[in-house]
């Protein structure tokens, strides 16, 4: 599936400033893997030292938040994937 990943501001430094990156994948995890293979410096923010996807990352498909058990749910052609890091500054 052709999926567009919208890059949030905190990750844009890893994508050379690109706001959107087109990837191919059947689900969120596959799309994320393609993105990180193209921009490997992003990995440190995505995974903990044990290699687990950080729970501080929130994923949205077509603007709707998805839960951790939906990360392998099939995506459709043309879907937009968006993810952000949880922040807590005040």
């Amino acid at each position: 599936m052709d999926v567009t990943i919208k890059i949030s501001s905190l990750f844009r430094k890893f994508t050379n400033g690109q706001d959107f990156v087109k990837v191919t994948g059947n689900n969120t995890i596959e799309c994320l893997h393609e993105l990180e293979s193209r921009f490997p410096k992003m990995k440190r923010w995505l995974y903990d030292k044990q290699g687990n996807l950080r729970p501080q990352i929130w994923f949205f498909v077509n603007g709707q938040k998805i839960s951790a058990d939906e990360l392998t749910k099939p995506l459709n052609d043309g879907d937009e994937l968006f993810f952000v890091l949880a922040i807590s500054g005040g």
Partner: peptide
């Protein structure tokens, strides 16, 4: 965080709560 900010309004019983969202920062 930096130049980025977020906001939402939580109405218990009707909406997601903060715990639905946050598993760490």
């Amino acid at each position: 965080y930096g130049f980025e900010g977020r906001a939402t309004t939580i109405v218990p019983g009707k909406t997601a709560c903060l715990r639905c969202l946050y598993q760490g920062v």
